[in-house]
Computed example of a mutant assay.
Amino acid sequence: MQSRKLLAFIPLLIFIGLGVFLWVGLSLDPRELPSRLAEERRPVPAFELPSLTELDKMLTPDDLKGEVALLNVWATWCPTCKEEHGFLNRLQREEGVTIYGINYKDEPAKAQEWLRRYYNPYQKVVLDIDGSLGLDMGVYGAPETYVLDKTGAVRYRHVGAVDAEVWKTLKQVMQQVEQEGAQ
């Protein structure tokens, strides 16, 4: 008889456990995905992939070094990438921000046409057709944007579109990284 009374409480305990689990999950910001690269200030993973914009040129992490910069993961199949593209053009044109691109799981001809039509804010564009570089970086999908220091180490990661509000944070991070490098 006593065990039957205890069995009656099991569904209640399961319900409470699920409620706590969902409450914690709903309080998390899905754009704040952990990045071991940024947390540990790791360099962009090793790669040798073709350039989208420079014919017959292979790019490596060394091509992403030299200055504090943004590294933007984008694709023509990504509607959010199209939303942010104009803003990236403005950042490059008006503020002189160095932006590198990773064209992620895309068709090269479509990506080249995209840059011709919507302008190219990128200093260099890595062509990651099979997504291997993105996988090594922990990319969940496009767009994602990273702040790189002068050595090519990842210092910050943003998941989602870059707009004026996000730029405030990215700019602060870039300024902090610049100051650290000057010391």
Rank of each mutant, 00 (worst) to 15 (best):
L28A: 13
L28Y: 10
D29Y: 01
P30F: 03
R31Y: 08
R31W: 01
R31V: 14
S35F: 11
R36G: 15
L37Q: 12
E40D: 11
R41L: 05
R42G: 02
P43V: 07
P43K: 10
V44A: 01
F47R: 05
F47T: 05
L49N: 02
L49T: 01
P50Y: 05
P50E: 01
S51C: 05
S51L: 06
E54S: 15
L55R: 15
L55P: 15
L55Y: 13
K57S: 12
M58C: 07
M58G: 05
T60S: 02
D62P: 11
D62E: 15
D62M: 06
L64Y: 11
L64Q: 07
G66V: 04
E67R: 03
V68Y: 05
V68P: 00
A69I: 10
A69M: 09
L70W: 06
L70N: 10
L71Q: 10
W74Y: 07
T76Q: 02
W77G: 07
C78F: 11
C78L: 12
P79R: 04
P79N: 08
T80S: 09
K82E: 10
E83V: 14
E83I: 13
E84H: 14
H85Q: 11
G86T: 14
G86S: 15
G86I: 12
L88I: 08
N89P: 00
R90D: 03
L91V: 04
Q92H: 12
R93L: 08
R93Y: 02
E95A: 14
G96W: 04
G96N: 03
G96C: 03
G96P: 00
V97G: 04
I99N: 12
I99R: 08
I99W: 12
I99C: 07
Y100M: 05
Y100F: 12
